[in-house]
Write a protein that binds this DNA or RNA. Structure first.
Length: 260
DNA sequence: CTAGATGTTAAGGT
DNA sequence: CACCTTAACATCTA
């Protein structure tokens, strides 16, 4: 479920497994997930090089290549990495394989092909072009307040708008609003200062806690909403029934008793 | 068989 | 123009 916490976990996973080894070869199993780079240019830029360092901005992650350039990854709705011995069967829906010369390889897996791999020379430019909103873990209280003042739809859509705040998707917007005890349809422009502050703190706390739980719902605190998704679940705070509603085309989960 | 699912984006409305 | 919402994308599961 790649939102900011998931992507941060993937970034750390790459750090722990795949850095500083020579890339023997790249296998492109689905050419259509390459964005703005041909298979030939990807191979040319990557083969014989090493992954040196990683960065993340919102739901994008980047890996620098020895000598020059960066790989940019977007995980879509279903993406993840798997690192394992090269002779093992790679996961179903593997789209690109990076084979290292230590006998291991990193698989970039997407069930639905909504993710992307790109090559870019400059991460700052890439972010400016693709996702200029401030990362949700970096945004200041001032910028957060300004963003909400300028938004017109629901607070849930405002949190999910990647042009303003990068990294929050459907699942974590619900969790943030639950912890802030705010209704997903609340008007972002009409929140009083104290509510904006509560929401800001909930955003930072939820994202950090989720990363600490390795983005695994089973490891999250017992009073989190996320593990109750899709089970006809109950509110972990008041015991009421969790309601779902369509908000701007996405299913919002919330507790009508706790969130006003 | 149909609807819906964690995401982005182009196109269509205000 | 700035902003918002919808449909479409690809693939699998309930």
């Amino acid at each position: 479920m790649p939102e900011l916490p998931d992507v941060e976990v993937f970034r750390r996973y790459m750090d722990e497994t795949s850095l500083h080894q020579k890339i023997k070869s790249v296998d492109v199993l689905a050419r259509d997930i390459l964005a703005g780079v041909s298979e030939e240019d990807l191979k040319k830029g990557v083969e014989g090089h090493r992954l040196e360092a990683t960065r993340r901005h919102g739901k994008y992650m980047f890996a620098s290549l020895s000598d020059d350039g960066w790989l940019a990854f977007h995980f879509g709705m279903t993406g993840y990495f798997e690192y394992s011995k090269d002779e093992e069967e790679h996961p179903e829906h593997t789209r690109v394989l990076f084979r290292f010369d230590n006998g291991y390889r990193l698989a970039f897996v997407l069930q639905r092909k909504l993710g992307k791999i790109t090559l870019t020379g400059n991460v700052e430019n890439f972010i400016r072009e693709h996702n200029p909103g401030k990362d949700a873990l970096d945004i200041s209280m001032d910028d957060f307040k300004k963003t909400l003042e300028g938004a017109r739809g629901s607070i849930k859509s405002a949190l999910m708008n990647q042009d303003h705040i990068a990294g929050i998707g459907n699942v974590y917007s619900d969790e943030i609003l639950f912890r802030a005890r705010l209704h997903p349809r609340a008007n972002p422009g009409q929140l009083d200062a104290r509510t904006v502050e509560r929401l800001f703190k909930a955003m930072k706390e939820v994202l950090k806690t989720a990363i600490g739980s390795r983005a695994d719902p089973d490891q999250m605190p017992g009073d989190y909403l996320l593990p109750q998704r899709g089970k006809g679940g109950e509110c972990p705070v008041c015991g009421g029934k969790i309601r779902t509603e369509k908000i701007t085309g996405r299913t919002a989960y919330f507790c009508p008793g706790c969130q006003k």
